[in-house]
Amino acid sequence: MNSSNSASGAVQTGDGMNRRSFLRASAVLTTGLAALAASLKPLMELEDFPTAERFMQKYYTELTPTEMDKVLKRIADETEAQYGKRPHVRDLKPMDGVEFAYCLNLTRCIGCRKCVHACVKENNQSRNPEIQYIRVLRLPHGSMDMEKAEHHYNPEKVPEPGFFNMPVQCQQCKNPPCVKVCPVHATWTDTDGITVIDYDWCIGCRYCEAACPYWARRFNFTKPFIPKDKLNPEMAYLGNRPRRQGVMEKCHFCIQRTRDGRYPACLEVCPVGARKFGNVLDPSSEVGTILRTKRVFIQLKEELGTSPRFFYYFDV
């Protein structure tokens, strides 16, 4: 500051600031800082601040087995701290000579939504707000027009005369638009055909949600809520481990079960046996038999060229 501006002629400080201007400036500055601190209040509510370990974690494919063990231990620790139950977290890799496919018999499906809720239970999805990977549509007979689909139907009894039901979940496309748009490669298709998401790499931009023609991706707008006693402790890194606020999730064919040789949860709960799952490279598998012997197939929105690994069929 210029000392010639000082009209009072008081004692000058070394850097040219007098007592009055110092007091005035500091009073304003203190108020300003207090106001700044108050305006940053929402930051105080950040619960899930990333630890250095999580922040510095490498990309999934670059992790060595020892590093992956550390990551799995960190996830188990974090989950235990939050839910009071130590989970069994694994990093399951795709099996050799296996490509998964899913077939759904539209003649059998009655639209009871049991698959939806078995999936929620198995995959530790948020109960409030509700996140569900499967959306069961109700369509009038004789049409495949998605504009006429309704997924809030709630009659006394299903199936309803004049309608059929069509559960839609991630179609595990061979040519997935969601993978193409991801700017950070947080989602990719594994060799067994499952499109997976690394929840630690996702930045939550929701490009994939916009790109998916099946509305299969779900975003955690808020911190997911799962009752402590409802947590499924059998977890996989790319599968059903608890998600954070601000990441994307979707159906992954129950990676924690299917890469272990089991059937997905939605299939095991279907009361009419409309859902079929297996290795499409094995001709004697259930899906192999269906694709060979049954007649009518629908790959949903086939014209988009996404080539789903999820087939809808009718039989008599």
């Binding site: 009871c112 809720h117 997924h151 709630n154 006394e156 009894k157 299903v158 004049g162 707008f221």
Partner: peptide, 26 residues
């Protein structure tokens, strides 16, 4: 013949924008 049954509840919307009444769109 497998009898009809009551379906599980429909999804709850975060922000309810519309109410769907029973047996619509006939």
């Amino acid at each position: 013949k497998i009898p009809g049954r009551h379906p599980a509840p429909p999804p709850h919307m975060l922000h309810p924008v519309r109410q769907v009444e029973h047996a619509t769109t006939h």
